[in-house]
């Protein structure tokens, strides 16, 4: 890694103003092929930000680098003023970052209840964990009905609910969502996004990575458009929704 750490010396602004997450010049490469070519973006505390783009634009690579499932080839990732680009992956959740991975990644041979308990793996406060499980069941009543069932027996949509619920169980400060609509029936997509909006309204900071640009922008405050590994456009989500280029390329108009 050839990350630049120029950040450390720079004067610190009033900490309340600093974004929760600052990504600068992030690069991801597989062998010689650059999937992400030095992207820069930030997320303020409490906002939902969409990262949209076509298949292969580098969205999932970006998220994998953020969540430390792979090493970045360069750039820096600062979270709460701290460089997290070299933390081992299992430390991230302790810092308050939770990822809902692409394809859900539920543990198929653990029960729903156990999957949720895994989400709270780093916590020890049993009464609060129990309360949070009830909170998740409140968001997704379907999960409560199937509490003792193995997660592998759930439908794709239910697994997505479980994956989101599991991520919430760590009480994150930052929630990373990778393609939550992927492979789901439209009605299920609506339900999932309803919950995402509810969680956002409760004050959660969310980075939403989506191929479904319309839905993502409707759910977010701001958006970034990723094309061939570079951010080509950024604006308030509302404005991106009405941007002719975005409408043509991503909204199918």
């Amino acid at each position: 890694m050839s990350a630049s750490h120029g950040q450390k010396g720079s004067p610190v602004n009033a900490s309340s103003k600093e974004p929760l997450l600052i990504v600068e010049g992030l690069r991801v490469a597989y062998g010689g092929i650059q999937a992400v070519r030095g992207i820069t973006f930030h997320i303020d505390a409490g906002e939902t930000v969409a990262l949209i783009g076509a298949n292969g634009a580098g969205k999932t690579s970006t998220l994998r680098a953020l969540s430390r499932m792979l090493d970045a080839a360069g750039g820096s990732v600062r979270y709460l003023g701290k460089d997290i680009s070299r933390l081992p992956p299992h430390r991230l959740v302790r810092e308050g970052i939770a990822l809902v991975p692409e394809g859900r990644g539920v543990f198929p041979r653990l029960t729903i209840a156990e999957n949720l308990a895994m989400g709270a793996f780093t916590r020890d406060d049993k009464p609060k964990i129990a309360r949070d499980i009830e909170h998740v069941f409140g968001l997704f009543p379907r999960l409560k009905e199937r509490e003792k069932q193995l997660a592998g027996t759930l439908s794709g949509g239910e697994q997505q609910m479980l994956a989101i619920g599991r991520a919430l169980m760590s009480r994150p400060k930052l929630l990373l969502l990778d393609e939550p609509s992927m492979g789901l029936a439209p009605i299920m997509v609506q339900k999932i996004f309803e919950v995402i909006r509810t969680v956002a309204a409760e004050g959660m900071t969310i980075l939403l990575i989506e191929q479904n640009a319309k839905l993502a922008l409707e759910t977010s405050r701001r958006g970034y458009v990723l094309e061939s590994g570079e951010i080509t456009l950024t604006d308030e989500a509302e404005k991106l929704l009405h941007n002719p280029k975005v409408r043509e390329a991503y909204l199918g108009e």
Binding site: M69, P89, L92, G105, F107, M118, F121, R166
Partner: peptide, 24 residues
């Protein structure tokens, strides 16, 4: 036990178990 649950989770999906905070 919690260790046992972490073992089963790691067996099923080590990358995601890591995301949950499990040290593989």
């Amino acid at each position: 036990t919690k260790l046992g649950m972490a073992m089963r989770a790691t067996a099923q999906n080590p990358a995601v178990a890591g995301l949950m905070g499990v040290n593989a």
